[in-house]
Amino acid sequence: MAKKESTFINMVIVLFLVTLIASASLGIIYSITKEPIEKAKVAIKIEAINKVVPAFNNVPLNESLSVKQDKDSLIIYPAKNDGVTVGTAIETFTNKGFGGKIKLMVGFLPDGTIKEISVLEHKETPGLGDKIENKKSDFSRQFVGENPEEFKLKVSKDGGDVDAITAATISSRAFCDAMQNAFNVYKSLDTENDSTTVKK
């Protein structure tokens, strides 16, 4: 069978048809995968929240608050048991990481102490900056149980209370920056009433 001739009209029709069929197929696949993709994203968030706050029976994702900062946002997830706040998970970030953005999920107890920290995303150097991860070193353990009102969230080089990771000062500083952002937002919550509005 001879190939179709390269006349102008043939070329236009074929290219148009190919693109049309392609777009249609993709549209279908997109609508099929839309929900699972959303579900996967939500599952990751819920897993992180579960790790950093005590047991709760509300749906933090439905009561979340967003605070804009630096072209992105910090997100507050209140965790409540029978309507009483047992903890607040804050999705925070910093752009000052060695490899770029670092995202953390920090859990605060109602008295302001840090319950737990989970690293969501980072691009720090393997073997050095990646020690901010829980399973790679105890760096993040020193924050647990501390209240940032007294525990200064800066590395000791900068006059704070945090022991930096050896040879990974930039990553350690960035981690503290993300923690400070989270704490600042936490303090601004109207906790006298409930953790669902930000103090003016």
Partner: peptide, 8 residues
């Protein structure tokens, strides 16, 4: 809302 067409 057709960001999935980005690659093409």
């Amino acid at each position: 809302g057709i960001t999935y067409m980005q690659t093409i």
